[in-house]
């Protein structure tokens, strides 16, 4: 991956000039490159990585395995795109292995998520089965540990 994308993935809050300092270029060049990434949808968006356990929120999150019947035209794409458009679905991936889609669904409580699965998801033509796993605790999310390690202590001057 391009160094600029790697940096943004680690910390999207860096300003263009901070990014430029790290990459040995100018803020203008960074701005132009980011604009291009946004236009071509390489960068889909920006968000903060939040540990829900540290918030007041009682929202729940579930990973749902979905088995699909592929369509003659378009395979899984059409139906996967339909599923992905639901607001409750925060991520949606086509998978190899024992099921076809892995989706992450978020909702205010267990019942809401359950009703989304039974009323919306399972009833879509082409959805063969679903298996819902509720998330219990976050240890690491999007590359960030929930509990960071102590800072390394080094001798202040060494050869």
């Amino acid at each position: 991956m391009e160094a600029l994308l790697e940096l943004l993935q680690q910390n999207a809050r860096l300003t263009n000039s901070e990014l430029a300092d790290r990459l040995g270029t100018t803020a203008e060049a960074v701005a132009a490159r980011i604009a291009a990434f946004e236009v071509e949808k390489t960068i889909l968006g920006y968000n903060a990585v939040i540990d829900p356990d540290k918030t007041e929120s009682s929202d729940v999150s579930a990973l749902i395995e979905v088995r699909l019947r592929p369509e003659r035209e378009g395979g899984f794409d059409h139906i996967a795109e339909r599923i992905a458009k639901f607001g409750q679905v925060t991520s949606c991936y086509l998978m190899s292995g024992g099921y076809d889609l892995a989706i992450i669904v978020e909702g205010p409580d267990l019942r809401e998520v359950a009703s989304f699965v039974s009323e919306k998801l399972s009833t879509i033509d082409g959805v063969l089965s679903t298996t819902t796993h509720f998330q219990l605790k976050v240890y690491k999310q999007a590359g960030f540990l929930a509990e960071t390690e102590n800072e390394l202590t080094r001798l202040p001057v060494t050869p």
Binding site: L152, R154, V157, T158
Partner: peptide, 22 residues
């Protein structure tokens, strides 16, 4: 030089010869 720096916690040291990563 080490002895001068040691014990001062206000110092930012660019005097080390090892990575800052574990």
């Amino acid at each position: 030089f080490f002895e001068l720096v040691q014990g001062r916690d206000d110092v930012i040291s660019l005097g080390v010869g090892e990575p800052d990563f574990s």
